[in-house]
Nucleic acid binder design. Structure first.
Length: 317
DNA sequence: CACTTGACCTGTCCGC
DNA sequence: TGCGGACAGGTCAAGT
């Protein structure tokens, strides 16, 4: 799920929902999900209020009144789901339906039904925590925030707020591609760090540019008519500028659409993203290229599933 | 060094 | 219907 637009969507949703809330208790499954000492969690999280929710690259930063910050990486399958407390908590009739039920996962009308009334996540009351829940934050007003992560790659970590800029990751990560001060020249300059590798690898390298993952790498390369295997050093200045424009375009569009989602994904506000219906190559193999009608192919570049139009994106010799 | 591969996990899908 | 294998939107560590 989460690349820059998805994490930004979660951030914006959380910002609306949890600022000012006070954390009453925290439950987590293993130290892997929350690698701080339990004593630190007790001292700096319990009782603290949420001051701000920020994002850098694909990482979420939740600033607490204790002077500490929760740093959260969702990796492949992480979600942050907020559930408010209902005045009278009536179990949803849907709650008896297992989430493994295919109809619930794929049928939009079922999702509409689930998210129809009140806060979109109200119908999840009683369904969380579930087996994917790694961390649960209980707020003093009875509402809850769940960190769910099927594949257990993600993590939550607590740092003193003033130390966050010094975290190794923060030191190394590249600039925000949507930043006002990020120019085509900056982009071309950063790419020179990886001039001997192919452009897809360079886009996915977080130290070159922050926040690009497999979806938006494929989408932007298609937009710029550049084959993912093209070596960075063989890109013309015009191609780099075009790629810069396309990258900014797809990232901004995806944020506007609430990110990408297939079936079950919902953000903190319980809304689905709709970028996938705008995707032009990603997961559209065997379908027509929207530009020229050629059948889109799926290959493997840099060990990642890669979608291209064989006509628009000429493979280097 | 720079680049590639495997590992981390669980779940789903596809072919036999 | 069951079972093995490949694959999934991310990043590290280890290997070449």
């Amino acid at each position: 799920m989460p690349e820059l637009p998805e994490v930004e969507t979660v951030r914006a949703g959380l910002h609306k929902l949890v600022i000012g809330k006070q954390i009453a208790s925290v439950v987590y499954d293993t130290p892997k999900s929350y690698p701080n000492a339990p004593a630190d969690v007790n001292q700096f999280v319990i009782g603290a209020k949420i001051l701000d929710v920020r994002r850098r690259a694909k990482v979420l930063l939740i600033d607490l009144s204790s002077g500490h910050t929760l740093v959260i990486h969702l990796k492949m399958t992480g979600q942050l789901v907020y559930i408010r407390k209902l005045k009278s908590s009536v179990p949803s009739p849907q709650s008896s339906v297992k989430t493994s039920d295919k109809r619930l996962r794929t049928d939009d009308s079922a999702l509409e039904e689930r998210f129809g009334a009140g806060h979109p996540n109200d119908s999840l009351i009683g369904q969380l925590p579930d087996k994917s829940t790694r961390v649960t934050f209980d707020f003093t007003d009875g509402s809850q925030l769940f960190f769910n992560d099927q594949r257990k790659f993600g993590w939550v970590k607590l740092y003193p707020t003033v130390e966050v800029p010094n975290i190794d990751f923060m030191q190394k990560v590249g600039p925000e591609p949507l930043g006002d001060d990020f120019s085509p020249a900056d982009f071309a300059g950063r790419l020179q760090r990886r001039k001997n590798t192919n452009i897809k690898v360079a886009l996915l390298d977080q130290t070159v540019i922050a926040g690009v993952g497999n979806i938006y790498a494929d989408e932007s390369l298609w937009g710029a008519k550049i084959h993912p295997s093209t070596l960075v050093k063989n890109l013309s200045k015009a191609q780099m500028t075009k790629l810069y424009q396309e990258l900014r375009y797809v990232l901004a569009l995806a944020i506007e659409k609430g990110g990408s989602s297939n079936h079950t994904y919902v953000n903190a506000e319980g809304k689905k993203g709709s970028y996938m219906s705008f995707a032009r190559v990603f997961r559209r193999e065997n379908q027509a290229c929207p530009r020229c009608g050629t059948i889109i192919v799926k290959t493997r570049v840099a060990g990642r599933g890669t979608h291209t139009c064989p006509k628009c994106q000429k493979e280097p010799a």
